[in-house]
Simulated assay, not measured.
Amino acid sequence: MSKIGFIRKQTFAPGVPEDAIVVPDPGEISRPTPSRPPTWVWMVLVLIAVVALMVMLYKTGIRSLAGGSMFIMPVMLISMVMMMRNRVGGGDKKNRGAAKNQERADYLRSLDELREDVHKAARAQASEIAFHHPNPCDGSLATLVGTARMWERGPDTRGNWGHVRLGVGVTRLKTKLTPPTKVPPPEFRETVTTVGARDFLHEQNVVHDVPRPIHLFDQIGWAFFAEPEQRATLQGILRALVCQLCVFHGPDDVQLAIITDDLPSWDWAKWLPHTGDPDFVDACGPMRLIFSDVRAFMDRFETDVRSRPPFAPTMDGSEKPDRWLVVVVDLPGADCSPLLGDQGRTGISVLEATGNEHSVLANADSAYLLDEVGNLLKAAEYKETY
């Protein structure tokens, strides 16, 4: 088995500026106090004037309107002018239908312009995430082998040590959306602009269909559950995790062991330098850390496993293991308790696909469930949902 030397080089990742976008204040419906009598007052005055005129004519014995016409006509004219003034010239011009529709159109147009800025920021964020977590299925990950980005992550690097892409999902937008600062009380809110601002904040605050990573070293391990006929799909997920782990993490930092009863599906892993045994060799070089059951693994690593302290989250300043051991258990019905114990071991992460619902990893924090269409879902309460 030949070896090709590789020297790590410094790499630079694209950045995403964390700008802020301010959502404009929604419209407001004002209700000013009427400054003049309403129309019905003028109608009552006209009616009173007509009745008064008729009474006056009757009392004076005048049977003709010739004498009273000079009185009634100005009254009627003034009343009509005032009523038309209330209807056409008076009132709040801002609350008229045409003006209010124009305000709504202007506000929604401003939201459309902001939406373009948000989408531009979301595309930049999605590109930055895809840079760190390329697609393992379309060849993007394979193009990094042998480049400066191979084995770029180490325990001293910031941000992505131990991170591998699990799938795609939703993440929060880095660009801050500042909500309106002046929101009218409920009774004075203009419905169209208020609903538009609310929907904008709800829908544009996340980025869809971006890679979603998990941190392999943040917990003692992860469990994956599926129906027996879905084993091939689950093996594909585990292979993708292993490939990303080995592309971005060097064999001097991460060691890989595989426990499986389906050796043909994992035969390719023998070419990974991460699966080489540091102590034992055969005619081809270092022996491969590929085992047929948990007992065979423990025969090789029992002393190392038992010498490690209980698992504790890694923090700045804390002592870190010289080499992290990742164990993939693709063995239905296997019992990983000899490896996991009650609390796990520091420096060991287990990817378990055993279907054992009594495992330490079968909990709401570390269990994933493969549904009937192949989507990998976080099992909030595994025993109730599976």
Rank of each mutant, 00 (worst) to 15 (best):
A148M: 08
F248C: 00
I48L: 06
S69I: 01
L234P: 00
E116V: 11
S79G: 15
V242A: 13
G154T: 12
V192E: 06
C246V: 14
G61Q: 12
K383A: 12
L256K: 07
R306I: 01
D92S: 09
G285V: 14
R87L: 03
E229P: 07
P332S: 12
I129Q: 02
Y382C: 10
T178K: 10
R104W: 08
R153Y: 07
D209G: 06
F301H: 15
K3I: 01
S349I: 09
T178F: 03
I220Q: 12
P74M: 01
M70S: 02
E203N: 08
V75D: 07
L53V: 07
M150N: 06
E381L: 14
P24G: 01
R8N: 14
N363L: 07
V22L: 03
R63V: 00
P251A: 13
V328S: 04
S349N: 09
G221T: 02
G5M: 06
H202A: 15
S69Q: 05
A66D: 10
W161Y: 14
R96M: 05
G159E: 12
V328E: 03
G27A: 07
A148Q: 11
E384Y: 07
E116F: 07
K9Q: 15
V51Y: 00
S307T: 10
A20M: 08
D253L: 05
D299V: 00
E113S: 04
L57V: 07
L331A: 10
L53S: 10
A334S: 04
L289M: 14
D330M: 09
S30E: 12
D253A: 10
H119E: 03
V118G: 03
G146R: 06
S349K: 10
G355Q: 00
E152P: 02
V242N: 11
V373R: 03
L77P: 03
M54I: 00
R189H: 08
G374H: 04
D330Y: 06
S110Q: 15
Y107Q: 11
F301G: 13
D316Q: 14
I129M: 00
Q204I: 05
E352W: 06
R345L: 12
M73E: 05
T346A: 10
K320D: 14
Q125D: 01
A380K: 14
L47S: 14
S359K: 13
R323E: 08
D252P: 13
L177Y: 01
K176L: 00
P273N: 09
P26R: 11
P273L: 05
D342P: 06
I62V: 13
N95W: 04
L166F: 03
R295D: 09
H163Y: 05
V294E: 05
N375D: 15
M70H: 00
L331G: 07
M43L: 09
R308P: 14
K100I: 01
D279H: 08
T354L: 00
E103D: 08
Q219A: 15
Q204C: 13
E28C: 02
M84C: 08
R198L: 12
T39W: 00
R153F: 04
G344M: 02
L57N: 13
G374N: 02
E352V: 03
